[in-house]
Write a protein that binds this DNA or RNA. Structure first.
Lengths: 129, 129
DNA sequence: GTAAAGTCTATACCTAGTATAGAGTCAACA
DNA sequence: TGTTGACTCTATACTAGGTATAGACTTTAC
């Protein structure tokens, strides 16, 4: 299949597929006589794996490491588990940050009403502090 | 005061201050004979305002709009309130996304133990799906 | 034969800064 | 007066993970 079909089947844009190839995430595939990229089912599986990883917010570098690990089926998978654990820590941390931000924003929001003038705006006053 | 002092007093790096000036967030200040930027107390106030806004994750464009609004003290401040409200919606949304991600990650994490080989790794198997 | 759709590469752009090179400025000290 | 060191200047490149474009080429359909 050509890149357009792979794009539709994977849900990744054509540019993204080419970008992943350039980044070394997706192996360079065969080309047709006219230099078109030609993919097969394994390309689709690989791309879906990458997409799955990205949906977990893994970075491209992390995904590269995962792919590298996958190529050594007899080694220990502890690095994979560590990666996921570490990621959970970061996500938890980020949630806490955002919760705090949300609190600040809600305090801000309650400092003003819609019918004031700029010079009396409670939000702007809080921002000045 | 020169940029180094403003940097220390504001907690923004020197490059960031110059960056804000280039972006039009911070007004271009006076220069000394040797072309050094010379700031005063009002520059520090302005920079602190920007920093406060950034800590709320407002974008540079949004801050520009706020600054613009601030310059019209007799207009309605409803756009300011809307900005904060809209931001809260986005933050809330992002938190929900991250909570879901965290759940997925924890399901992943529990799919494997540290003592397996890569080819038996529960995490990698989930990622293949 | 030709028009439309698809693909190719290369390049620029996005956010919010950070890092660097190479040059100039300024103050203190010998 | 010379020089050293700290500070500042501009311009440019880089970060992550793509997205968007231009201009050329290929393929397909009629």
């Amino acid at each position: 299949m050509k890149i357009g079909e792979l794009s539709k089947k994977s849900g990744c844009s054509i540019q993204t597929i080419r970008f992943y190839e350039k980044q070394g995430l997706l192996e360079a595939c065969n080309r047709s006589e006219g230099n078109y990229r030609i993919y097969d089912a394994s390309s689709l599986r690989a791309l879906r794996f990458i997409k799955q990883c990205r949906s977990l917010d893994l970075t491209i570098l992390e995904i590269k490491q995962l792919l590298n690990t996958k190529n050594n089926p007899d080694k220990s998978c502890s690095s994979v588990n560590n990666l996921i654990q570490q990621h959970m820590v970061e996500v938890t941390h980020r949630i806490a940050e955002l919760e705090e931000l949300k609190l600040t924003l809600s305090e801000m929001a309650s400092a003003c009403t819609d019918n004031r003038k700029v010079k009396e705006c409670g939000v702007l006053q809080l921002l000045e502090e």
